[in-house]
């Protein structure tokens, strides 16, 4: 489930953000508690807590005292905006570089994209 490339708390935060982005977690939906998360993934509760702390600090989740943590109403839109900005640098540019390296020309890619759309 978790790899050695980065701290687990960051991997948890990324996973929850992805769930929000893809709509698996929706606005005002309650997320698992720190302890549920810790026992499910067999990790130290402090590690799970750190992930949730970061998500609430960044405004993707909000706390309701004594009840739990919930997805912020604007979380999905904010994540989408952030990912849109990076789409060309993170997704398109490496794809173009790969296409050049293996000898696929740009027209072929455009043709392929139009067919898919």
């Amino acid at each position: 489930m978790f790899d050695d490339r980065s701290p687990i708390y960051q991997q948890i935060a990324e996973k929850i953000k992805k769930d929000i982005l893809y709509g698996d977690l929706t606005a005002d939906e309650q997320v698992m508690s720190t302890n549920q998360y810790a026992s499910f993934y067999r990790i130290n509760p402090a590690t799970a807590a750190k992930a949730f702390q970061q998500l609430t600090d960044d405004g993707y989740l909000y706390k309701r005292r004594g009840i739990g943590m919930f997805v912020s109403p604007d979380a999905q839109e904010r994540l989408r905006a952030g990912r849109r900005e990076k789409f060309f640098s993170d997704v398109v540019r490496p794809m173009v570089a790969e296409a050049r390296a293996v000898g696929i020309d740009l027209q072929e890619i455009i043709h392929h994209l139009k067919e898919q759309a």
Partner: peptide, 9 residues
């Protein structure tokens, strides 16, 4: 002596 999670990466 270090936070365990911080050792990743």
């Amino acid at each position: 002596h270090e936070e365990s999670d911080a050792l990743r990466g």
